[in-house]
Every structure is written in structure tokens, then in C-alpha cells.
């Protein structure tokens, strides 16, 4: 599977990042993942600013956003994305360990496109991540407003500062 779009993964737990990459590896999608450890970096990536200014960035097809992170919470980042006219068409999938009704509601109210609970069983976890990503990668086209932000250059390794 060749992808001209990337999967923006916003997750502060490096162990979970690794599990997600392993989950996507069998589908050849691990390379498409741009993992970012905090929400503000994700916003900078999406807005091509800060540390990402002037870099050739791949447009994300989907943002996988962890809800509970140190620093800005996933919900805050979600609000930032959905309140930004140029980013709001981007599908955002919330990843959370909990299924707290209030949190789920708050996320959907803020415009989340999906809320996925991370199952503790790795088999299920793997399936859920794969299905989620496959769905959003294949069903969704990148919104034009978002695409114009990116150079649309040839697919390559996304520029990610370590």
C-alpha cells in the first residue's frame, strides 16, 4: 500500500506509540505514521509553523489523538483543530483508555470524528487500531483546505524532528 498521506499520531506514551506502530506494520502502514509526543507539536505540524515551518510535510489523512496527555490535553488540541477553519475538515480519532461517558460526549461535542477506546488486550488493540486507521485512510479524502496547506510533494519520509 503506497500512501501519499500520513497518519498523524499524537501520543505521549512511547510504549503505546510502539504498540500502534507494531499494529500497523502488517498492513505496511507503520511508515505512514508521524508520531508526535505532544499536542502543541501536532498543532505546529498541522499549521506548518514553529519547528515545522518551511519543512516539506505530508498532509495527514487522519489524526489519532490520545485524550490524556501531559501538557495540553487531547480535548484542548481537538478544540484547536475543530475551531480552525482550515483544519476542521481533518478527521480526528480520539484514542482513550477510558470510556467515561462525559469524556466521550465532550469529545463528540468538540467535533471528534470517532472515539476509540484502547482495549487492554493486545489482540483487540491491534485490530481496533488497524480497523480505525484503514477506515479513515480509505474512506476519507484530504480536505482541499487542508491539502493546500501542504506542498503536496512526492511521498517520502515525513520530516519529523526527533
Amino acid at each position: 500500500m503506497t500512501l501519499s498521506k500520513c497518519i498523524l499520531l499524537v501520543e505521549d506514551d512511547s510504549a503505546i506509540i510502539e504498540l500502534i506502530l507494531r499494529s500497523l506494520a502488517p498492513h505496511g502502514m507503520a511508515d505512514a505514521v508521524v508520531p508526535l509526543r505532544d499536542g502543541n507539536a501536532a498543532l505546529n505540524y498541522l499549521r506548518a509553523q514553529g519547528e515545522f515551518q518551511g519543512l516539506r510535510l505530508q498532509p495527514p489523512a487522519v489524526v489519532l489523538l490520545d485524550l490524556k496527555m501531559s501538557g495540553s490535553s487531547g480535548l484542548e488540541i481537538l478544540h484547536e483543530i475543530k475551531d480552525d477553519p482550515e483544519l476542521q475538515m481533518l478527521p480526528v480519532v480520539i484514542l482513550s483508555a477510558s470510556l467515561n461517558e462525559r469524556e466521550v460526549t465532550a469529545c463528540y461535542r468538540a467535533g471528534a470524528n470517532a472515539y476509540v477506546r484502547k482495549p487492554f488486550s493486545f489482540d483487540e488493540f491491534r485490530t481496533v487500531i488497524q480497523q480505525t486507521v484503514l477506515f479513515w485512510m480509505t474512506v476519507n479524502q484530504v480536505a482541499p483546505a487542508t491539502a493546500s496547506r501542504f506542498s503536496g510533494g512526492p511521498a517520502g519520509n515525513p520530516a519529523v524532528p526527533s
Binding site: L19, R22, K68, L99, N100, K118, F122, D123
Partner: peptide
């Protein structure tokens, strides 16, 4: 639901890996 489940995801995930 959150803080105790999160480490379980890691335990089960890495045991599997």
C-alpha cells in the same frame, strides 16, 4: 478505568510482542 487500564495495555501488548 484510565490510569489502571493504561499499564495493562502495555503489559498485554508487550507480552504479545
Amino acid at each position: 478505568s484510565h490510569d489502571l487500564r493504561a499499564p495493562l495495555i502495555r503489559i498485554d501488548g508487550f507480552a504479545d510482542l
